[in-house]
């Protein structure tokens, strides 16, 4: 297992697999900033088995597994030779359209279990926002809020399936005004984290403290979010399939389910 030391290393791995000229499948979608942080923290490793390159992100909580391969058959063959030192749980996100169902089966037959699943929802068109969207308590987050937001994410979100961001990512989003908070006496009772790329708006996290969910804080945040994304033409986010209440709420806001899936599979750590 070799440590990745730069984004160029990742590009070289992609190059290696494509050099076989037999096909290309992956669950690794490069995000420059996020992956640079992982590399800087010395969390990323890789190994090649046959025509597949496995990338691992090792954190104290768990290991995330990624693959870059020439196809399903070679992935299956390579996976049988992969020996992960399993001192933590190992998680893999298999992301894509219907074509990923066979990839999921390959991992299920290799000792992984289905942990949960998500699908993507989208909305096409401009966002309408109420004229009185900015009410007392609502604001963009500031750097001093970072610790509190991180604490809420770590407490209320599932680290296997919800890809909890690093402090560095939170700071970057705060600096680019992409975190909205609702506060009472300096306590954050809710937040929305989003990313804006041209005409596309990604809703990353939408949270309201469970003990304050009768105050319509979620709607206030969402109206502010709609104002922020008022010039976008497509809005996207991932939702847990099991979160039926949220899916209903999103549909109420005009979102539709896409045929884009994310299966989160888990291999429990080896207990001696």
């Amino acid at each position: 297992m070799n440590r990745l030391t730069s984004l160029q290393d990742i590009q070289n791995l992609i190059y290696k697999v494509r050099e076989y000229r037999k096909g290309f499948i992956t669950n690794f979608f490069l995000e420059t900033f996020k992956h640079s942080v992982w590399i800087e923290k010395k969390e990323m490793y890789h190994t090649q088995i046959g025509e597949t390159i496995f990338i691992l992100r090792k954190t104290p909580q768990f290991t995330s597994l990624f693959y870059i391969s020439t196809g399903a058959d070679s992935l299956k063959e390579s996976l049988s030779g992969l020996n992960i030192n399993q001192d933590t749980d190992c998680v893999i996100d298999i992301v894509g359209n219907e074509s990923i169902f066979n990839i999921k089966s390959i991992f299920l037959s290799s000792g992984f279990e289905e942990y949960t699943s998500l699908h993507r929802m989208n909305r096409i068109g401009a966002l309408d926002f109420p004229s009185e969207f900015l009410v007392p308590g609502l604001s963009e987050a500031c750097l001093e809020d970072c610790g509190q937001i991180a604490g809420l994410l770590n407490t209320y979100f599932d680290y296997y399936s919800e890809q909890i961001p690093s402090i560095e990512e939170l700071e970057k989003w705060i600096e680019s005004n992409q975190i909205l908070v609702y506060k009472e006496q300096d306590n954050i009772l809710g937040f929305i984290i989003y990313e804006l790329f041209g005409v596309t708006l990604y809703l990353r996290y939408w949270f309201v403290d469970p003990s304050h969910r009768d105050k319509k804080i979620g709607s206030l945040l969402f109206n502010y979010f709609k104002y922020k994304g008022r010039e976008t033409k497509r809005q996207l986010f991932w939702v847990l399939d099991s979160n039926e209440n949220a899916i209903k709420r999103y549909k109420h806001y005009g979102f539709n389910s896409e045929k884009m899936f994310n299966y989160v599979l888990l291999k429990k750590r080896y207990v001696k």
Binding site: F29, L30, G96, F197, V199, L201
Partner: peptide
């Protein structure tokens, strides 16, 4: 890319 019409998943 800058206009948000394609992301890294779309590129693959």
């Amino acid at each position: 890319i800058a206009d948000g019409m394609l992301d890294s998943f779309d590129v693959i």
